[in-house]
Structure formats: C-alpha cells, structure tokens
C-alpha cells in the first residue's frame, strides 16, 4: 500500500479514532463503574471510569430480586421463540421473493403487499384490539407473533439470495432437487453471513423491545426485561393516586442509581455475549444484502 507517507497525519487520525471510540463506550464504562461503587459516591457524582469504594452490593441485591429474574426469563424465552419464528419466516419468504417475476408470476403482488404492510399501520388501539380478540394478551405469543415477519430482514436476505449464481440452483434442479431442497441444501449453507446478520437483528430487536411488553402484558410477571427497566428507571410516575402510608415505606427502600446501573449492566450481558460471534458476519451480511449497484 502507498499510504502513511505522512507520520503526523497518521498519528492524528489514530488519535481521533481512538478518542471517538473511547467517547462511544465511555457512558457504558461510567455506568459499569457506578454499579460497582459505594452508594454515596455513586449519588454525588464522584465516579468516572473506575469504581469508588468498590463493592458488589448492587449485584448482590439483584440476585435476590425476583422480578428482575422473572423478566429476564421472559426476555430469554421471547428471544428464543421469536428469533426462531423470525428465522423461519424470513427464510421462507426471502427465497420465493428472490425469484424474478419471470419464474414466479405472483412475486410483485406479494412484494407490494409486503411493502404496504411495512409502511402503513392502523394505529395503536386497533392493533391492541386485534391482539386482544385473538386472546393473546399476557401470553408470549403477543410478543412474538405480531413481530413474526421482519420485513427489513426479508428484503436483506432476498437481495442476498438474488446474488447467488443461477447455475448453482439450475444444477441442483437438474439433480432433481425441488424448491425446498434447493433452499435448504443449496441456498442456506452459502448464505451464512446473511443468515447470521438477520438472526442478530431479530435477536437484538426482540431483546430490546419494551413498548409491546408495556401495552400487551397485563401482569408484571410477563414483562420482558426492557419493559421492566423502562418502568423502573425512566417512568416518573410511580406513586399511587391514593395517598397510602404503607406504599411509602416500601418505596423508600426501592430503586437507587446504584442498583439501576447494575440492572442496566446485567441487561446488556446477553447482547454482549452474542455480539462478538455475530459481529464478524454482519458487516459482510449487510453489505451484500443492501448495496446493489
């Protein structure tokens, strides 16, 4: 290569990039440091990027927080079930839609239908009423079925499938493979980067969703973790409209910045765990799926 002719410019670039990378992750490090700090330093802003008065009390109290783990469990269940459904639907839709209209005459009708569904919605209340009348409120199905068709992922994978050489498919067909076998034996094995990408997206999407949990789950035990955290940390109105003495006593012992930071950190763990494995795929997966010139 013929770069690096100017040392000074190089060092400047490295410095800027390092700085930007640090700033991107600094808030997370700060939160991590707070979660391991003592209560007083955490509340009075003495913690920067290293714990002050190191202790594990916040994490210890999470261990005894039943609600947190119940919600964590709901989220895990949601990711596994929802991710699997998303995967199946994505693959099954992307494959026929990747066929040109010449080979699949109904394609453009389907395509327009899908795009229409992506862009239009009936609004919150009718959506709620539909799910209500299907009897799905408070069940895991309300979290995985309405989001079962990840249209963006379908388009991504469809574009990738289109890039697969026709010869591969034709050869398989000549060997007597039908569309199902072609899909599973020929297409899927060579689509790993794209499959990893859409899987990552749907896992992250399911893990991060809080709004549907808030609207569709009637009991706290069914809240996914993000809904739990949203209600805990962000929602400002926790006090009841009846002025009740006992509530006061309990609320007093609840929620602190310290504990919240620890909960935020723990809720990141699953994403941090899968991220390195899928990260090496998704850049190529997105690029191959999205950029078509």
């Amino acid at each position: 290569m013929i770069r690096g002719t100017n040392r000074f410019v190089d060092w400047t670039i490295y410095a800027i990039l390092s700085l930007v990378a640090f700033v991107s992750i600094a808030p997370i490090i700060n939160t991590l440091a707070i979660s391991f700090s003592g209560k007083i330093p955490a509340m009075s802003g003495q913690v920067f990027f290293w714990p002050v008065e190191f202790n594990l009390s916040a994490y210890e109290s999470i261990l005894s927080d039943r609600d947190f783990f119940v919600s964590f469990g709901v989220s895990i269940k949601r990711v596994l079930l929802g991710g699997a459904i998303n995967f199946i639907i994505t693959v099954l839709m992307a494959y026929p839609l990747s066929k040109p209209s010449r080979l699949f005459p109904g394609r453009s009708v389907y395509m327009w239908f899908v795009i229409f569904c992506m862009l239009f919605s009936g609004g919150l209340i009718p959506w709620y009423m539909t799910i209500y009348s299907l009897g799905m409120l408070d069940t895991i199905w309300a979290l995985v079925l309405p989001t079962a068709v990840p249209i963006f992922n379908v388009i991504l994978l469809m574009n990738f499938f289109r890039g697969i050489p026709k010869e591969l498919e034709e050869a398989a067909n000549i060997d007597g493979a039908g569309p199902w076998k072609t899909l599973f034996v020929v297409f899927l094995p060579i689509s790993l980067p794209s499959l990893a990408t859409v899987t990552l997206f749907s896992i992250v999407g399911h893990w991060n969703a809080f709004f549907d949990g808030m609207i569709l789950m009637q009991h706290k035990e069914n809240w996914p973790l993000q809904t739990y955290i949203q209600q805990l940390i962000i929602s400002v109105n926790s006090i009841m409209n009846t002025t009740d003495p006992e509530e006061i006593r309990r609320l007093t012992n609840m929620s602190s910045q310290l504990l919240n930071s620890a909960k935020v950190m723990v809720s990141m763990v699953p994403i941090l765990l899968i991220y390195p494995f899928l990260q090496k795929y998704f850049v190529s997966g997105i690029v191959l799926g999205a950029v078509k010139e």
Partner: peptide, 9 residues
Amino acid sequence: DFSIEDLDA
C-alpha cells in the same frame, strides 16, 4: 386481569 404498579402504565 391486570395489576400494574406504575400509575401511567
């Protein structure tokens, strides 16, 4: 049927 703690929710 439902029992949600946060008043807004």
